[in-house]
Amino acid sequence: MTAMVKAEGVHKSFGAVQVLKGIDLEVKSGEVFCLIGPSGSGKSTFLRCINHLEKINAGRLYVDGELVGYRQKGDKLYELKDSEVAQQRRDIGMVFQRFNLFPHMTAAENVMEAPIQVKGVSKAQARERARELLDRVGLADKAGNYPSQLSGGQQQRVAIARALAMDPKLMLFDEPTSALDPELVGDVLDVMRDLAESGMTMVVVTHEMGFAREVGDSLVFMDGGVVVESGDPREVLTNPQHERTQAFLSKVL
């Protein structure tokens, strides 16, 4: 299996604060890769580095064999132009903790926007595809609703449909259920489970240990900007080796 995401010594700092202190990991194609850890451990920051919403300060980060945000010629790195970065991002879907739906567009328009604007898909085609995707996340009847008229769980499912509309090869989930009422979490996780079954490569930052155990193929525990422990989710969650992992899991499980 080829690596969909490959990180080699990734460092990231905001001013004087070092958030990532050398991350090495590999996400295989088609797997569900879960990132867990206490808040401030750098897991969300790492996720945002994968689609270059954050620039890394050191190390190398590859998506599908391609360097993210830079071009290497000989031993020199060149920053990519904005348009080239945008090109790279097309294939990487992202789902945010706070949904970030476009509030001035209906659910269907949210899903149609990027295919029309970025890929030049015709409006009719985009509408048809949006209908399919909204149906897939169980919201076919909400196509004409504005985000403010939807519950948090429904908004997040529209956000997933919106990301899928670009036919990404990789999906990033940044704590997709953390902003939801507990009773709405299940619907979103169901959609993610379906997506995992369809073979999508997913990197998921989450606090849902149940989801990680059931659906995850690999799991990484991060703390203080480094990977503390990694392996099969069932093993790491039931039998953590490192004491920091044990301390964290004893609090959340």
Binding site: Q87, R90, N100, F102, P103, V118, M166
Partner: peptide, 27 residues
């Protein structure tokens, strides 16, 4: 306009100009 809007738009592969015109300015 919330920064998350720009991020979401960029994450979808939309350019700066399109993000401004389609997402930020209408809001």
């Amino acid at each position: 306009v919330d920064e998350g809007q720009t991020e979401a738009s960029h994450a979808l592969g939309m350019s700066h100009a399109k993000t401004l015109r389609r997402i930020v300015i209408p809001q």
